[in-house]
Design a protein around this nucleic acid. Sequence first.
RNA 1: GCGGGUGUAGCUCAACGGCAGAGCGCCAGCUUGUGGUGCUGGAUGUUGGGGGUUCGAUUCCCCUCACUCGCCCCA
Length: 413
Amino acid sequence: MALQPIRGTRDILPDESRRHRLVTETARNISARYGYAEMSTPIMEVTEVFKRTLGDTTDVVTKEMYTFEDRSGGSVTLRPEGTAGVARALISGGLSQHLPLRYYYDGPMFRRERPQKGRYRQFHQIGIELLGEPGPAADVEVIAVGARILEMLGLKDKIKLEINSLGDTESRSSYRQVLVDYFGDHKGDLSEDSQTRLRKNPLRILDSKDEGDRKIVANAPVFSDSFTAEAKDFFAAVCEGLDDIDVAYTLNPRLVRGFDYYCLTAFEFVTDQLGAQGAVIAGGRYDGLVEVMGGPATPGVGFAGGIERMALLLDEDPVSSRPIAVVPVSAAQMREAIKLAESLRRAGLNIKLDLRGNLKKRLIRASRDNASVAVLIGEDELARGEATVRDLDSGDQQTVALDKLAADLLRFS
RNA sequence: GCGGGUGUAGCUCAACGGCAGAGCGCCAGCUUGUGGUGCUGGAUGUUGGGGGUUCGAUUCCCCUCACUCGCCCCA
């Protein structure tokens, strides 16, 4: 059997690559407008980095990480997400001296899940992190960046924003207890999945798709009942801030986050067009994270977005720039063609030069490559110090002096 | 990890258990200094892999791999 890529990994060929690039460039540019500077952390980290931060009971940590022993004996893990690495970098680099910090990143992440549409074992995320800002304005800013990226990508109509508050640490643990008590009373009626959730992550039951569960959930106590006054005010301020800058959202009291480090604001930009994979960009506040990793207590907010998911939602292929084909009429002009191509490239033009083939084949390839113009040089042209410039869309052609060629070709780019 | 569906040419897909096909694409010619449209001709398959039933398997059965949909989880 022919060699295949590892399950859940894929080759990203040029067409798809362009889509990915459009996503990352848009995200990077929009983030930069808000002051987020690009950084990147290693793809591998010491396993502890993820184990400590994501939560020992989450599926990602218990079943989905690519963890292996390094030759020196230490346990190493391919990153399943980006935030933990940034937090680790903050600590390792002593960056907390310079708070607040705004970072943008993109790159591959790895989770050993069952592949599905928009879900791969090696997938790619963009993300931003705002560290050292405790106030609700920070949450608003981060959400705005996400909203604006999606807008710029033309995805506004396909995606809606849902937000919720998980309460501060204090509210969260009291709510958790209230919830465990409530669901404990209905344990017999819960689905099998939810019974294990009750043990591992009771908040998740709120998000269950099981119909029976939903009935029980409908009457379950909600987060806000357990909020401290501070948590309540904080969430109100976030909502108000979003209203002020016209970021539309809906409240979803059942919105929960997967990783333990989240608190207060949680948000998801969701779509119904990717089957079971609804979340396109998701994030929230994670005030306890840096401290859990052994650093100074540092508030943080951020999000991660799935590049494949955004690329899948893009309506049309991003246009790629059209090359100009340099075409020697016969093999005798090949050396001149190489020299010409080189000088045009140095003038900033996008030149396609086939390394072999006759005139006919070269022109076929030129139109296949979507070239806008073919620059033909044959014996006659060279004798006069000219080239024939053929517009491949209209078929019109004219001769142009070689020393004016670069300037003339600009009208096609 | 659990459940369902699908694997046939480069791509999209046909073929009652009986000679593996079509469209697109590709190659060549019509056209020896001119592509895209047109016409003519041509090449291409271990039917995902392995095993079984059968005189005979692309077709039926089992295993396996991959893809896909849902669950779980998540971006």
